[in-house]
Amino acid sequence: MDIIFYLFASILILSSLKVITSRNPVYSALFLVLSFFSAGAIWLLLEAEFLAIALVLVYVGAVMVLFLFVVMMLDIDLKKLKEGFWDYMPVAGLVALIMFVEMIMVLNQDFFKTMQATPNHSVSNTEALGQVLYTDYVLPFEVAAIILLVAIIAAILLTLRGTKTHKGIDPADQIKVRRDDRVRMVKMKSETSIKRSR
């Protein structure tokens, strides 16, 4: 079992490194997909199959697809992005160092150290999660859901601002149209023979 864990863990770390070192942003996004997969596999080893599959389903199946969507359409010029790299280096390095020290201080706390997950064998992972989510944590769960809903509505409203620019037609209007609105039948006398006058 250990070999499998180390295999997936090393794939995870290598692909995460490639995410930040790849020159092409599309490759970065694809390496992020690979690291999600490896993380899912590690969760599977912990018998957390619901979390593992949900990670693949939500992040790989939906979020990263939209990410790739955007990244592919961007025209990124790396040379321009790298301009002034050394000018910012001292400040950026200092910030990075402070963040690194802070993270080490947090991660050294005791509550991060006792993290041996013990799978509950009496019920499946899906059932166990559902039981705590809808009993002990029902309030935080619902609050999170409402926050997400607000975010969705806000995002949609942002795109709906301003005047209507697209040429889409409301299907309700389309089916209301009757024949008489569009076609007018005209009765005409058939033409008589042409008189040739010269």
Binding site: V26, E49, F50, I53, V56, L57, A62, V65, L68
Partner: peptide, 25 residues
């Protein structure tokens, strides 16, 4: 015969879109 079979199928079918996107790009 896994417990979360239905979820697994959903995850797999949602991954299939990558082939299409990558092919196009």
């Amino acid at each position: 015969d896994i417990n979360a079979g239905l979820l697994y199928v959903l995850a797999m079918t949602s991954v299939a879109v990558y082939g299409v996107i990558i092919a196009g790009w």
